[in-house]
């Protein structure tokens, strides 16, 4: 069994109109090399699901998106993703805006093969008004409480970036916060991982094995791309990670204020392959030396 693939092979399995979940959180641990490969492809009409950052912004800017399902689209130190904002204000994308907790609840429902999971979140607000496809349900027990039936968010594909993986599909996440990557993997028919380090077979200690958050049976393919989360961060509690590239993210955001700014960004950074991208942003050494942010 060998699940190793290239980014191009992963993206060749994707189809127009698919629902794709992307792991990470805002400017943190996004599978950006895989996103860049989608940007270079002819894919269109995608539904993108996630706790979004530049992944969602870039896919909107490139016209790949029909619908976004998100808990937010933020770059953290830049609170609002500028290309996402433009797409929303132009009305060019459909938006399902969820409470952050509701998004993971919908992924869990999909993971458990349930039509929905109940929650109170969203009730008493305008959520049901702006998302009329979401319904309430009445508790069948004595309380008779009205609850929101958070529909399953079924993914065709999940894309995640991890620290380490093996060719069988075993993986390790050493982030301070693993976010909801596990639930993206479980909610998807197919899950592709990019990773910083790829080995034939991980044979670790008990302690290290705790950093395996989902089974290899959920993983369809693994791609090794050192630095593949750039410009987002890839912090590892056991050392060896990197921070986000604030300078590059600012440069990217400035493109949103310029006429034809996105095309200029594409010409400058996305014209070639991932190796060319890494050269254009200063090289792999520079990426992997970016200091971790301090909060």
């Amino acid at each position: 069994m060998n699940k190793e693939m290239t980014t191009a092979e992963v993206v060749a399995t994707l189809e127009d109109g698919m629902t794709i979940g992307i792991g990470g959180w805002g400017p943190r641990r996004k599978p950006m090399a895989l996103v860049r490969e989608i940007l270079r492809s002819g894919l269109k009409d995608l539904t993108i699901v996630g706790y979004g950052g530049a992944d969602m912004g870039m896919l909107c800017a490139a016209g790949k998106v029909r619908k976004l399902i998100y808990g937010f689209v933020s770059l953290d130190f830049i609170p609002l993703e500028p290309f996402f904002r433009q797409a929303r204000e132009a009305g060019s994308i459909e938006a399902m805006e969820l409470d952050e907790g509701m998004l993971h609840w919908g992924l869990r429902a999909a993971a458990y093969r349930l039509p929905f999971l109940p929650t109170r979140s969203g009730l008493g607000t305008d959520f049901l008004k702006v998302s009329p496809e979401v319904k309430t349900v009445t508790s069948p027990y004595a309380d008779g409480e009205t609850l929101l039936a958070m529909p399953a968010i079924k993914l065709d594909v999940a894309l995640l970036h991890t620290h380490k993986a093996d060719r069988l599909g075993n993986s390790r996440l050493y982030s301070p916060d693993p976010f909801f990557d596990e639930w993206f993997a479980r909610a998807a028919d197919r899950c592709y991982l990019s990773c910083e380090e790829l080995v034939d077979r991980i044979d670790s200690s008990e302690e290290d094995a705790k950093h395996n958050l989902f089974e290899r049976s959920l993983v369809t393919g693994v791609v090794q791309i050192r630095g593949g989360a750039h410009p987002t961060s890839h912090v590892a509690v056991n050392g060896g990670g990197y921070g986000w590239d604030a300078g590059h993210i600012k440069r990217y955001c400035e493109a949103a204020n310029e006429e034809g700014g996105w095309q200029k960004y594409v010409d400058e950074f996305l014209g070639g392959d991932e190796a060319a991208y890494q050269q254009a942003v200063g090289g792999l050494e520079a990426i992997t030396s970016l200091p971790r942010q301090v909060f």
Binding site: L80, D99, M102, R120, G122, G124, T125
Partner: peptide, 17 residues
């Protein structure tokens, strides 16, 4: 089609209830 997109609902619905 918002006049001005802001942060989105973020955690407000779940927090507040």
């Amino acid at each position: 089609k918002p006049k001005r997109q802001m942060l989105g609902m973020r955690g407000f619905p779940g927090n507040s209830i």
